[in-house]
Design a binder for these strands. Structure first.
Length: 871
RNA sequence: GGGAGUUUAGCUCAGCUGGUUCAGAGCACCUGCCUUACAAGCAGGGGGUCACUGGUUCGAACCCAGUAACUCCCA
């Protein structure tokens, strides 16, 4: 059977993924093996696969596949998130395109559209993950608005409410005037913008004097209820307790004094607008100031503003500046650059706004979550993220969980017409509670219109995917999960809150390790985004380079927590690697029908011994890399094992001379080694490794590399490892002589070796094989008229050919001599340093002495060679 | 404004407890090869003031202090 010289991924990928699914290798049910669980960070239900998902899910798949091979009951739970703001925005947009406004629809009608959209687009992303080779247990696919999941979210709300951890309060919140919803702090993005600083005149009541206030938002003077100065500020001391006129508005407000004001900023006078600025709100509460809400929920000026009613905030900013100027109240307007909060979802400027919202009291809840990360019960990789986690958790604010949306989990609170509320699981339950709490009330009850923050459902993910709020059988087996792989961007949104929920509802950590991936950027370091158009389509990449190639490309240069500068060249490298393995397979496979019963050749004997020692060494190294979550190093070590050790050395050593057959014993050993290598490769390159594994030996139906045992390392034989180094150096020595003297590889040479202790004779046939040496002669004395090279103190000689150039050879030896003498000099400086000799540990001293000795020996050899040539 | 981090080859990064032949890898680059598994390959090679300035030490890429540049997070 002819095997193509290029690996063709497409057919192998389709074939083996279907096989894996058909045999149910990825499905997990509790049994007596230890569990190893990963829950996927649920992508947005209507999202499409992007490069960040590729990286994230490749890492998870590597971890879960290795765990499966190590005998764990591996369970990777997939699923999607309802993503309330993002999904609702998409549905609204789609309806708008069809000429339907959300406000024209009833809640029920809108939700019908939303479900329709979800069913149409939902799960596309999961299908894409299958192309990548993700070994999820697809029977367990969950959605954050599944019936049971929905119930868990509502029950959690009710539970926290009953525990007094959820309260309703008027707070300054981040308001998105486009989406008309409150946003959490984390959903606000601060951007540098070029704006203006307006200097406004506030006349002191009962005097001709005035003070000047600098502000970037002149329109908010409509809501001013005080002016504040620093009590230490000498410029304004005489004005404490006086009143000023708000310009244009002509309202008299107090001048208050508080440390909060920065004397250096602007004029040192701060206008206070409690309804429209977080810090002003704080001042307002402290000094019992009037709160004037001068803005509507869509960002237009309200009745309370008194003027410009119904006009947009930014239009008013321009107009009021003109009007102030006309009235002589604008002193100056200077260019100013500051940071302004924007909505992550709609990209409009956030408006701080007072409103009634639901909050979770985070103070007590967050304590165990902080402690158990700081004491490493939950480990972060890389650990540097503990710092920012700590900082955030120690300054944690209450969590605003209500969102003015329809798509999501509707808040289970019911209001009476006279403003009381009852938290209950259903209207019926609420009515009953109402009867006992408010026996005289006869009116109806109306459920809160708002839904819960998306993260209020996803923080339950590691528990809820196992229905852990309602039954114990699965959650007690799979929880706590093993590793969580996610982006540092959502450390606070999600990771911290899952830890909080874990301790609150299971009394236990939700996962043992958190591996933070970096952000995938383009070659110029820009974040990949749709709007920049700099993100390749992952499916196109898989098509071009194969899933294995792309997986390798993603992992090659992405240490934990570091951003990955994505370059298609990396996928190409991955594809080339796959092809390299493929060709090793072709070579070995060809030997299968071409063996004979014979003693292994000397070079093959040596090769098998060394390769096994080397394999053991690398397995150890890989396990260590994995333990430390150094995925890219594990991959690179596997890469070098395959390419350098197995292909460049091992296979060349066992390869029979042209036209000859391979002995059966070496063939069997080679297959075993290859199988082990495929096992090590499988987490990274599941398709290619399975394809070869299935062909390299006759397999039974139902067998798969997925289930093969991860090799156990036995201590590597150091002798083989050390001796091999001398061997490779010898071969390289011969190659260099060929290169330097233009001796063709095809030309057979004679190698002469000086008889001495500890020779390399066991490697001689291997050296002959790889160096194309026709005979190795042992000599008692140094032979004349020879090229020579030195390996670890041993001299090798190759008789001159007709191309020999004395001058060149002398120069080379001379350079080498100069270098070695210089080196010796440096070592001796160290060794004659009294303080070094008396302070350095014995080990280091011995090493330096060994260096000295070796260098002296080498110098002697070089000098003799030069003398011989110069004759 | 507050906090954290980074700076080592052209690029991306290792360098773990200060000491393993004057600092390593992969890619890229240069030279020579279509050698019967693989040109998506083989063989060989060049490339570094370890950001800078001081300090500690017998010894510093590594520890300490300062300076500079960049990045991220938070307000």
């Amino acid at each position: 059977m002819e095997i193509p010289s290029k690996y063709e991924p497409q057919s192998a990928e389709a074939k083996w993924y279907a096989y894996w699914l058909e045999k149910g290798f990825f499905n997990s049910v509790p049994d007596d093996r230890p569990a190893y669980t990963i829950v996927i960070p649920p992508p947005n239900v209507t999202g499409v696969l992007h490069m960040g998902h590729m990286l994230n899910n490749t890492i998870q798949d590597v971890l879960i596949r290795r765990a499966r091979m190590r005998g764990y009951n591996a369970c990777w739970v997939p699923g999607t998130d309802h993503a309330s703001i993002a999904t609702e925005a998409k549905v609204v947009q789609k309806l708008r395109a069809e000429g339907v406004k959300k406000s024209d629809l009833s809640r029920e009608a809108f939700l019908e559209h939303a479900w329709e959209w979800t069913h149409k687009h939902g799960g596309i992303i999961l299908e894409q993950l299958k192309k990548l080779g993700a070994s999820c247990d697809w029977n367990r696919t969950r959605f954050t608005m599944d019936e049971k999941y929905y119930e868990a979210v509502i029950d959690t709300f009710i539970d926290l409410y009953n525990k007094g951890k959820i309260y309703r309060g008027e707070r300054m919140i981040n308001w998105d005037p486009a989406a008309k919803t409150a946003l959490s702090d984390e959903e606000v993005i601060y951007k540098d913008v070029q704006s203006h600083l307006y200097h406004l005149k506030y006349q002191v009541v009962g005097s001709d004097a005035f003070i000047v206030v600098a502000t970037t938002r002149p329109e908010t003077i409509l809501g001013d209820t005080a002016v504040c100065v620093n009590p230490k500020d000498e410029r304004y001391k005489h004005l404490h307790g006086k009143k000023v006129m708000v310009p244009l508005v002509n309202r008299e407000v107090m001048i208050i004094a508080d440390d909060y004001v920065d004397m250096e900023f602007g004029t040192g006078c701060l206008k206070v607008t409690p309804a429209h600025d977080m810090n002003d709100f704080m001042l307002g509460q402290k000094y019992q100031l009037e709160i004037i809400n001068m803005m509507n929920d869509d960002g237009t000026i309200s009745e309370a503003g008194g003027m410009y009613i119904g006009q947009d905030r930014f239009a008013v900013r321009k107009q009021i500046a003109l009007d102030l100027d006309a009235a002589g109240l604008l002193i100056k307007q200077e260019a100013y650059s500051n940071k302004v909060g924007y909505s992550e979802r709609t990209d409009v400027v956030i408006e701080p706004r007072l409103s009634m919202q639901w909050f979770v009291d985070m103070k007590d809840l967050s304590k165990p979550a902080l402690d158990n990360v700081m004491n490493d019960n939950i480990k972060f990789f890389p650990p540097k993220f503990k710092n920012s986690y700590k900082h955030w958790m120690e300054n944690i604010k209450d969590w605003c969980i209500s969102r003015q949306l329809w798509w999501g989990h509707q808040i289970p609170a019911y209001y009476t017409e006279d403003g009381h509320w009852i938290v209950a699981k259903s209207l019926e339950e609420a009515q009953e509670k109402c009867k006992s709490q408010y026996p005289d009330y006869t009116g109806g009850l109306k459920q809160d219109e708002d839904v819960l923050d998306t993260w209020f459902s996803s923080w339950l993910w590691p528990i809820a995917v196992f229905d852990g709020f309602y039954r114990e059988d699965e959650v007690s087996y799979y929880y706590p999960t093993a590793d969580l792989v996610t982006a540092p961007e959502i450390m606070f949104f999600w990771v911290a809150r899952m830890i909080i929920a874990g301790y609150e509802y299971r009394g236990e950590l939700p996962f043992k390790n958190v591996y933070y991936t970096g952000i995938v950027r383009d070659k110029q370091g820009r974040k990949m985004s749709k709007s920049l158009g700099n993100s390749p389509d992952p499916l196109v990449l898989i098509d071009q380079y194969g899933a294995d190639g792309v997986r390798v490309g993603m992992l090659l240069s992405s240490p934990a927590g570091n951003d990955l500068l994505f370059d298609e060249g990396l996928c190409e490298q991955g594809r080339n690697f796959a092809n390299k393995i493929w060709n090793a397979f072709r070579l070995v496979n060809g030997w299968g029908e071409n063996t004979e019963k014979a003693k292994p050749r000397g070079s093959a004997l040596v090769a098998v011994q060394w390769m096994n020692a080397r394999l053991n060494q690398v397995i150890d190294q890989l396990n260590d890399d994995y333990d430390k979550f150094r995925m890219n190093e594990a991959l690179m070590n596997t890469y070098k094992l395959v390419w350098d050790d197995f292909c460049a050395w091992y296979l060349e050593m066992v390869k029979p001379p042209y036209g000859e057959k391979l002995d059966e014993e070496t063939y069997a050993a080679t297959i075993e080694i290859f199988e082990k290598i495929l096992t090590l490769l499988h987490p990274f390159m599941p398709f290619l490794s399975e394809e070869i594994w299935q062909t390299i030996r006759v397999r039974q139906e139902g067998e798969s590399l997925c289930l093969a045992q991860w090799p156990v390392a036995i201590p590597a034989d150091e002798n083989w490892l050390n001796g091999f180094e001398a061997f490779t150096e010898s071969v390289i020595g011969i190659r260099n002589i060929r290169k330097d003297n233009a001796i063709a590889n095809k030309e057979k040479l004679v190698l002469k070796v000086l008889k001495q202790d500890g020779d390399l004779s066991v490697y001689h046939t291997a050296i002959e094989h790889l160096g194309n040496i026709e005979a190795t002669e042992m000599c008692d004395e140094k032979p004349a008229a020879c090229y020579s090279f030195i390996v670890k103190g041993r001299e090798f000689f190759i008789p001159f050919t007709e191309k020999f150039d004395v001058t060149a050879e002398l120069k080379k030896l001379g350079d080498d001599l100069a270098y070695t003498e210089d080196f010796l000099q440096k070592v001796r400086v160290k060794l004659t340093n009294e303080r070094f000799v008396s302070n350095a540990p014995q080990q280091v001293l011995d090493l330096e002495r060994k260096k000295e000795e070796d260098a002296m020996h080498k110098i002697e050899l070089l000098k003799t060679q030069i003398a011989a040539l110069a004759k």
